[in-house]
Design a protein around this nucleic acid. Structure first.
Length: 807
RNA sequence: GCCCGGGUGGCGAAACUGGUAGACGCAAGGGACUUAAAAUCCCUUGGGAGGCGACUCCCAUGCAGGUUCGAGUCCUGCCCCGGGCACCA
C-alpha cells in the first residue's frame, strides 16, 4: 500500500476556494430556485482590527447550517455584506486622523479577505455595503416612504452635549456623566431631531412575538424593551381648575396618594408655581438641565425636588395634596406626572421620607411587612367603600367609580420610545430633506437620489451643534424641488440602525440599480428562512427591522410583515471570562490560527468549544484534538477499500451517527454532532485494526461520514470526496438518511437497581420482555445479595433501559 | 430591584419526555515504537475505603429541604456567576 500523503490544510483550502469560484459552487439560481432557502447572518461592522473570533464563531455556525440545508436539497442563498456607516467608524477615523471614506474601503477589503479565507458559502455576487451610494440611495428612499406616510416627524429632544468638544455624544460615549474623550461633565441640550413613529406599532410588535420561532432569550429581551404596562390615567384637579393627568399601574392605591410629582419640564409647571416658590423652582430646573441624560436616568442615591407651592385635589379622598417637581419623574413616560403613594412605592417612599411628606398605608399585605410594601397580594384599607377588596379587583372598581366623574380612564403604556434617527454627525447617509422657506420641509424627489455624502476634508463635529455637512456650502444650499425657491439641505445623517433595518431586502436584488428590491426576487426569497445572530442586536436591530417590514407591508411594497420568522441567537465568545473588546485588549483575531491549523480545523474547533447557542471562553488548548480527528479521517479515507460489507456493529453505529448528527445539526448542537462523528471514527478505527496501517475503512462506511462532515470542514471533505472518484462537489451530494431498524438493532445493556440503587447490569437483545429480564435479574448473585429473600413489593421496568426491584 | 441564561471531574463539556452521571475532547501519568525526540499507537485517570486479584462498598452534579421506586433533570427557599433593562410610576 502506498504511504498516505500528509494532510496539508493550506494547500487543500486554497485549491477548493479557487475551485468554488471557478465552478460557481456558491451561486444559486436566484430566479428559478426549486427550494429557496435564505440563510442570513448578521452582517459585520468592518472594524480596523479585522474580523475577530467572535465574528468567525457566529459566521461558522450560520454557515454550517446553510451548508447542511444545501445538502438536504435546498437552494441556499448565503450573502454577506458590511455595515460600515456610523459613529464607531467615525470616532475611530477621528482618532487616527483619516477620513472614514478612505478608511472603510481598506477595512472592508481586509474583512472580505478573511471571510473568503475561513470558507463561508457566500455568494459574493451579492455583497453589499451600507456606505455604497447604490445602497444608501435606497436607505434614503426608505426614509422618504416613512416621511410621506406621516411616520417621520421632527421634535425637539434632549441630547448629550459635551461643552468642551462641542459635540453631541451618543449615550455610550458618556461615562459616569462625563465625556469619554475629554472627561468634561456632559450636559443636556435640546435639538430638533427626526423620529419614526415606532410606538404606533408597539402592540403589533408585541403581539407578533407570539408567532415567531425565535430563541426565547431574544423574545424576552424584546418584550421587556417594548415594556407594556396596563393601568389607568387619573385626573387631579387644582383649585384653579387645572387638570393634572397622571399615569399609574396601581389605581387601587389612589387613597394613599399624598402628593403629586410632575417632571421639571412639564408644560403645566409654569401655571402651577406659586410666587414665593418661583426662584427655587427656576434654580432646580436649571440644575436638572445641567445634568446629562444618562446620569439623570440612572437613579441617584438621594432624590431631589422642589415644592411648587400649589395643591391639587385627590379625586378619591377629596383632600388637597401638594404638588412637587422632581427629576425622578420623566417627561417622556406616561403623562410626565405621577401620583405619589409613598406607602406602596419605593421611590415615592424615599422621596417622602426625605422631604417629610405624609405616608398613608392603604394596602394590608398578607403577612406583615415594613413600608413601603409594594405587593399586590394584599387587600385595601383606609380606602372608603373599597376596604377589604383584593388589590386588583379594588383597582378595577376604583377606576370605574372615578370614571363616572370623568376622573379616570383605563390605559396601557409602553416603555418603547419613538425611534430617533437623527445624528448630528458626518459618517452616515444624509437625511433626504430640503428646507424651503416657502414650502417647509420637502422630501428630495426619488429622481434626485441618492443625496450623496460629500467628501469633507475636515469632518470633525463643531460647536454649532449641527452636522459638519452644514459647512459644505455648495452642498448645503439647494433649490427647493417643489417651488424652485431657496432651500437648504437637512444636515443630519441617519442612524446606522436604519441602514441595517432593511439590508436583508437588498441582498437578493443587489444588481438592480433602479429599485430597492425586485418584486419577483423578494417574493421568491423573503421572508428570510433562517436568521442567526447575537443577542447584542436582540433589541434595536431586530425591532427596527420588524418595524420597517411592517411599514413596507402596509405601504404595499412587500408581502410579509415579519422579516425573520425563524431566528436563533448564538452565544458570546469571551476571553478570560470577559467580553472581547479593544479597550480590554483581549480581542483574538483568527488569522494566525487559520494559518497554523487551517480554516477547517479552526471552524470545527470553535464549534466544539461548547454549545453554539451558549458561547464560551476562547482558549487554544484543544485545537489539536480536532486536527487529530481530521488526520484520522484522512488516513482512513486514503486506506479505504472501494467496497466491502460493513460489519453489523459498524453499520449500527453509522445509522446511530447519521440520526444524531442530523438532529443535532438541525438544532445547532454542533458540539455534540462533532462528538458523535468522533465516536463513529473511533469505531471505524477499532474495526480496521487500529491506526498506522491495516485495512482502513470502506467507502460505504466513509462516504456518509464525509457528507455529514462537509458543513463543518468543507474544504477537507471536498478533497476526500474527490479522492473517492467523485467529479462534482460534495455539496452536490445528498445528506444521508438513517434506517431506524438498523440504528436500534443489537443488544442493549440494562441497569439493574434494587430500591433505586444501581446493583448490576445486564445485557439482553433489544426488546426483551419484562418477565425474561426479571427472571434473569433475580438469578443474579449481585442482586440476590440485596434482595435478601425479601418479597418484591414492586418491579419497575423501563424497556431497554432499566429494571428496579422494590423490596 | 426586575427579566433571561448558567453553576456537573484537573480543564472545555455531555446526559432523550425523571431511568446506568461524566459521552466526546484537552491535559496528566504509565507503556510501545525510536539511537533520541517529535508524531503515532495502547493502557489508566471524579473522590474515598477495602481486596493479591477479576472486583466490592460508600460519597459525589452550588447550598438546604421536598416529591418519587428512582432527581443533574421536577417543586420550595437560599447562595454565587454571566447578560439585558433600570427613578418606566
Amino acid at each position: 500500500m502506498p504511504p498516505v500523503p500528509p494532510y496539508d490544510p493550506a494547500a487543500v483550502e486554497a485549491k477548493w476556494q479557487a475551485r468554488w469560484i471557478e465552478r460557481r459552487t456558491n451561486e444559486p439560481d436566484l430566479d428559478r430556485p426549486a427550494r429557496p432557502f435564505y440563510n442570513l447572518m448578521m452582517f459585520p461592522y468592518p472594524s480596523a482590527e479585522g474580523l475577530h473570533v467572535g465574528n468567525m464563531f457566529a459566521f461558522t455556525g450560520a454557515d454550517i447550517y446553510g451548508r447542511f440545508k444545501r445538502l438536504q436539497g435546498y437552494d441556499v442563498f448565503e450573502p454577506m455584506g458590511f455595515d460600515a456607516f456610523g459613529i464607531h467608524s467615525e470616532n475611530y477615523a477621528l482618532s487616527i486622523g483619516t477620513n472614514p471614506a478612505q478608511l472603510i474601503p481598506r477595512n472592508i477589503a481586509n474583512f472580505r479577505r478573511q471571510l473568503k479565507r475561513f470558507g463561508g458559502m457566500f455568494d459574493w455576487r451579492h455583497e453589499l455595503s451600507t456606505t455604497d451610494p447604490a445602497y444608501y440611495k435606497w436607505t434614503q428612499w426608505l426614509f422618504l416612504q416613512l416621511f410621506r406616510a406621516g411616520l417621520a416627524y421632527k421634535k425637539r429632544a434632549a441630547v448629550n452635549w459635551c461643552p468642551k468638544d462641542k459635540t453631541v455624544l451618543a449615550n455610550e460615549q458618556v461615562i459616569n456623566g462625563r465625556c469619554e474623550r475629554c472627561d468634561t461633565p456632559v450636559e443636556q441640550r435640546f435639538l430638533d431631531q427626526w423620529f419614526f413613529r415606532i410606538t404606533d406599532f408597539a402592540e403589533r410588535l408585541l403581539v407578533n412575538l407570539g408567532q415567531l420561532d425565535w430563541s426565547s432569550s431574544t423574545v424576552a429581551l424584546q418584550r421587556n424593551w417594548i415594556g407594556k404596562s396596563e393601568g389607568a390615567e387619573l385626573v387631579f384637579e387644582t383649585p384653579g381648575s387645572r387638570k393634572i393627568a397622571v399615569f399609574t399601574t396601581r389605581p387601587d392605591t389612589v387613597f394613599g396618594a399624598t402628593y403629586l410629582v410632575v417632571a421639571p419640564e412639564h408644560p403645566l409647571v409654569e401655571e402651577l408655581i406659586a410666587v414665593e416658590q418661583r426662584a427655587a423652582v427656576r434654580a432646580y430646573q436649571r440644575e436638572v438641565q445641567a445634568k446629562d441624560i444618562v446620569s439623570r436616568r440612572i437613579g441617584e442615591k438621594t432624590k431631589t425636588g422642589v415644592f411648587l407651592g400649589s395643591y391639587a385635589r385627590n379625586p378619591a379622598t377629596g383632600e388637597a395634596i401638594p404638588i412637587w417637581i422632581a427629576d425622578y419623574v420623566l417627561m417622556e413616560y406616561g403623562t410626565g406626572a405621577i401620583m405619589a403613594v409613598p406607602a406602596h412605592d419605593k421611590r415615592d417612599f424615599e422621596f417622602a421620607t426625605q422631604f417629610g411628606l405624609a405616608i398613608r398605608q392603604v394596602v394590608k399585605a398578607p403577612s406583615p411587612e415594613p413600608l413601603p410594601s409594594v405587593s399586590e397580594d394584599g387587600v385595601l384599607m383606609q380606602s372608603g367603600a373599597f376596604d377589604g377588596l383584593p388589590c386588583r379587583e379594588g383597582g378595577r372598581k376604583i377606576v370605574a367609580w372615578l370614571a363616572t366623574r370623568g376622573m379616570a380612564t383605563a390605559r396601557v403604556q409602553y416603555r418603547l420610545h419613538d425611534w430617533c434617527i437623527s445624528r448630528q454627525r458626518y459618517w452616515g447617509p444624509p437625511i433626504p430633506i430640503i428646507y424651503c422657506e416657502r414650502c417647509g420641509p420637502v422630501g428630495v424627489p426619488e429622481r434626485d437620489l441618492p443625496v450623496e455624502l460629500p467628501f469633507i476634508e475636515d469632518f470633525r463635529p463643531d460647536d454649532t451643534g449641527v452636522s459638519p455637512l452644514a459647512r459644505h456650502k455648495e452642498w448645503y444650499f439647494v433649490k427647493c424641488p417643489d417651488c424652485g425657491g431657496e432651500g437648504r439641505r437637512e444636515t443630519d445623517v441617519s442612524d446606522t440602525f436604519l441602514d441595517s433595518s432593511w439590508y436583508y431586502l437588498r441582498y437578493p436584488s443587489t444588481e438592480f440599480a433602479d429599485r430597492p428590491f425586485d418584486p419577483a426576487r423578494t417574493k421568491t426569497w423573503l421572508p428570510v428562512t433562517s436568521y442567526i445572530g447575537g443577542n447584542e442586536h436582540a433589541v434595536l436591530h431586530l425591532l427596527y427591522s420588524r418595524f420597517v417590514s411592517m411599514v413596507l407591508k402596509d405601504l404595499g411594497h412587500i408581502h410579509f410583515e415579519e422579516p425573520f420568522p425563524k431566528l436563533r441567537a448564538h452565544g458570546l465568545i469571551v476571553k478570560d471570562g470577559a467580553k472581547m473588546s479593544k479597550s480590554r485588549g483581549n480581542v483574538v483575531v483568527p488569522d494566525a490560527y487559520i494559518q497554523q491549523w487551517g480554516a477547517d480545523t479552526f471552524r470545527m474547533y470553535l464549534m466544539f468549544l461548547g454549545a453554539f447557542q451558549e458561547g464560551g471562553d476562547f482558549r487554544e488548548t484543544g485545537i489539536v484534538g480536532i486536527r487529530r480527528f481530521l488526520d484520522k479521517v484522512w488516513q482512513l479515507a486514503h486506506e479505504a477499500t472501494p467496497d466491502g460489507q460493513l460489519a453489523p456493529e459498524t453499520e449500527r453505529k453509522l445509522h446511530q451517527t447519521i440520526k444524531k448528527v442530523t438532529t443535532d445539526t438541525e438544532s445547532l448542537d454542533y458540539n455534540t454532532a462533532i462528538a458523535a462523528m468522533m465516536e463513529y471514527v473511533n469505531v471505524l478505527r477499532e474495526r480496521s485494526g487500529g491506526g498506522g496501517g491495516g485495512g482502513g475503512g470502506t467507502r460505504q462506511g466513509l462516504e456518509p461520514l464525509l457528507v455529514m462532515l462537509a458543513p463543518y470542514a468543507p474544504h477537507f471533505t471536498e478533497e476526500l470526496w474527490e479522492l473517492f472518484g467523485h467529479e462534482t462537489s460534495v455539496f452536490s451530494g445528498a445528506w444521508p438518511s438513517h434506517d431506524e431498524r438498523l440504528a436500534t438493532a443489537g443488544d442493549v445493556e440494562i441497569a439493574v437497581q434494587v430500591n433505586g440503587r444501581l446493583r448490576s447490569r445486564l445485557t439482553v437483545p433489544r426488546g426483551t420482555a419484562q418477565e425474561l429480564v426479571v427472571a434473569r435479574v433475580l438469578a443474579d448473585e449481585a442482586v440476590k445479595k440485596f434482595v435478601d429473600g425479601e418479597p418484591l413489593k414492586n418491579v419497575i421496568y423501563v424497556q431497554d433501559r432499566l429494571v428496579n426491584l422494590v423490596v
